[in-house]
Design a protein around this nucleic acid. Sequence first.
DNA 1: GAGTGTATTACTTCGGCATT
DNA 2: AATGCCGAAGTAATACACTC
Length: 302
Amino acid sequence: MSKKQFIKRHHLIINKLRSNPCSFKELQKHLANHSIDADENYVISKRTFERDVNEIRDIYKIDIEYVRTINCYVIVHDADEVKTDRLMETFQIFNALSISESLSNQIILENRQPLGTENMHGLMHAIKNHFEVHFTHEKYWDEDHEKTKRTVQPLALKEARNRWYLIAKDTKDNRIKPFGLDRITDLDITRKKFIYPTGYNPEEVYRHSFGIITEDNNPPQKIILSYSYDQGKYIKSLPLHHSQRELVDDEKEYRIELLLHPTYDFLMELLSVGKEVKVIEPLSLQKKIVEMLVATLKQYSN
DNA sequence: GAGTGTATTACTTCGGCATT
DNA sequence: AATGCCGAAGTAATACACTC
């Protein structure tokens, strides 16, 4: 537990400064109010706070600066709030679950593969400090579940479809690729520093991706989908992609426009809602869907 | 007395080292 | 590995001194 304290502390600091800028003294009071006991104490020295400010900048891309005229620390550049909130939420759930063993009957969890979040803390540290890491990676695609040893340069963590991925440069072929956290075992963080690739911006790379598959060679495509009225409500409240734009919203259909790469994972997402959605554009995607459905039908036509 | 340059003050910031 | 303490360096605001 104590290992994750700094993450919680970061959240407290960010939330406080977001709601209102304040001096270090006020912030300390705020942290003291949220401390429970000696085991969960968020009161820290000035020096640690200064280090936290830097870490918050590195991890969350939130700039905190001191403004002398009002004796306050202020967030001058805030990252995408949704993103940081989401990141924090995940950690909070993770923390809550590890505390609440006594409530195990009252909290019903989906039965799924572990997400590999136990490595998250270590990986965040490695990303922050530019340390190379070793791990064993298990492929799902290969039939024999081949396990390989990897040495990679961790660049970013990314969540996609309820799974977490490490975006890292594989030293074997110098290519940047995602590794599912749940497929990583025997994580070993080395002390070997690497140079962060200049100009690499994970946010930018995944901007037009639906999930974890990237396609940097082709430009993203305009995709128009027509959802049924009922399914539309879900899509409205839980957009597929940040580029989602509403075109039609009436009792007949909910039509949206997206700008992304129609990768395999996107195709699967569309197929998962069956007849509730129809691809209007582009025709190539429409064709792919039809092909898939024909192949599916074929499986039952004996 | 306004304007300008300089010294002082009161801070933050940051690296190094010790402690846990 | 995370944190705290210390001291050096840096800096913005203020006070002071000087000139015109």
